[in-house]
Every structure is written in structure tokens, then in C-alpha cells.
Amino acid sequence: MTDSTIAQPQADDKARNQWWDVWDQFKSHKGAMAGLIFLIFITLFCLLGPLLWSLDPGKLDIRNKDLRPVYVALWDGSAKTSWANPMGTDNLGRDIMANIMQGGRISLAVGWTAMVLAILIGTTIGVIAGYFRRLDGLLMRFTDLVLALPLLPLLLVMMLLFRDPLRAAFGPENGIFILIVAGIGITSWMQTARIVRGDVMALKEREFVLAARSIGTPSRRMITRHLLPNVLSPIMVSATLGLATAIITESALSFLGLGFPSDFPTWGKILFDNVDRMTRFPERVLFPGLAISLTVLSVNYIGDGLRDALDPRIRGQ
């Protein structure tokens, strides 16, 4: 007790790194911490899982097809279960756990990259439209134009047009990956752009921006130093929502048969492949569905916590 009271003033004298304050605030948000732990878990599960669980997700094992997950044996002694396939196998005998690991890699990669792409495009267009009055009309009408396009048919046309050239250039898997990420990215930046533009326009009239102008801060540093940090909150929120939409859009594309090839699992694809047998084998939609929704939920919570932690006005309260 006495030790801590003596140590206190010294700690104040030596300036503390601000990121520790951010971390302290983040830690106090229980949902965000739970979300972070789950996200780390699911990421490690997908990235390191295949190293430990060396079953090939594509390997067909007809003799062991339609195995139920091991926990079914608890109440149904007659069910076919096996510890070699703890989550069971599908109708072709492929291991579901290995498929979820492999599918998670693709889904998470698509989700993150498409979200980052959408946020980058949206923020850039929003900030430029909000800050430079002359470009506002042009950029916002362009945003309205893209917003008015029907998204799914557009994506389908893009897939048909660009699939083969991209496959030829980057290989079948990378080509499709680039195509899907780009397709989702450039069709989901509009909301971000609109929100950012509105916020930038309001911020631009604040006195601290005028103060920066009186110092002679040029436009690009005005944007990076004064405007972007202040529009961080809405960007963070749309980023978390964007990740969710990206994962779900990829599932929809896979379902329509225009996403990844059929022997290439993603969470959305596993889900849709097994919709027909949902009543007999609920676990086949339950596991990928849970993976998608829990990932989305945890990212939403993390975004919420980060937004609070990065705002010095909320921090420390």
C-alpha cells in the first residue's frame, strides 16, 4: 500500500506510452475482450489446425461416410461415430473438421481483404468528396450510381467476364480469390464513403481545422492529422459490418456456383452444400454457421471496444 502511494508521482512524471491507455480502456470492455479471444482462437484454429489435424479435407472415404459427431453418442447409442472424425463426415466421407479449418482460411482471408479494400476505397472517396468541394458532386453522384447497381447480378457478370483471364494469369485458386475479393470490395464501399463524407464536411467547419489552416498546414496533412483520426469511429463501425457482409456475400456467390470451385471449401459453401440434409445432419450447417456468426459477432464487439478505446474523450471514464 505505502509502496504504491510513493511510486505514484514518479509514474506521472515519466510520460507513459498512449497505446497503454488504449489497451487499458479496451481491456475494460468485456464484450470486446471476449470477441478478441474468440477471434484469436478461430484464427489459430484455421491457420495452425491443419498442421495438427493432418486429414486432407478433400479426401473421400466412402466407407466412413455420414458419420455423426462424437457427442451424438451421448444420447443415441446406435449412431455411427468415430474419434477419427470428431465432427463427423459428410455424404462423401470428407472430414468436416478439416473442411471447416480449410474453409475458415479462405473465408477469413476473403472477409478481411475485401473489407480492407472496401474501407480504403470508401474512406478515400468520402474524405476527398467531403474536403474538396469541387469534387463533391462528381464523386457523390458516382457513389449513387454504384449504389443503384444491383449487386448480385453485377458480381455474376464480373465472374463470367473475368474468371478465365484471371485464372490463366494467377492460377485457378489465386485468380478466383482476387476476383471475389475485388468484386466484393468494389461493390460495398458506398455506405462508408457516404458516412465519411458527411462527417468530414461537419469537421471541416470546426475551429481546430481553421486553426490548422492559420498555421499553414497543407491539405494532405490536414486530412491525415486532423480529419482521419476524428472520423475513425464511423470507419471502425462500417469496417466491422463490412467484414460480416463480405463473408456472407462470398457464401452467396459460392452457393450460386460462381465462387470458388466445388472442391474448394469455404464456410459459406459448406453451409449451402448441406442445406438439403439439414434435418438429418444438423451439425453440418451448425458448425459452419456458428463459425460465421461468431466470427462476425466477435469482430463487431472488437470494433465497438476499439472505437471506445481510441477516443480520448471516452477513455479513462
Binding site: Q18, R206, E207, F208, L210, A211, A212, S214, I215, G216, P218, R225, H226, P229, N230, L232, D311, P312, R313
Partner: peptide, 24 residues
């Protein structure tokens, strides 16, 4: 004008609004 800015400066009316809340 940028080169001239150091010669002339301004103190603003509202000390709340004239400081960026995200900067130390």
C-alpha cells in the same frame, strides 16, 4: 502564404473547439 504563416498567428474564441480532441 504558407511561408508567411509563421509571422502571423491567431488565438481563437472557443478553446474547446479550436483544439483537436484526438491530439495531445
Amino acid at each position: 502564404l504558407r511561408e508567411m504563416r509563421p509571422t502571423m498567428q491567431m488565438v481563437f474564441q472557443d478553446p474547446q473547439a479550436s483544439l483537436n480532441p484526438r491530439m495531445t
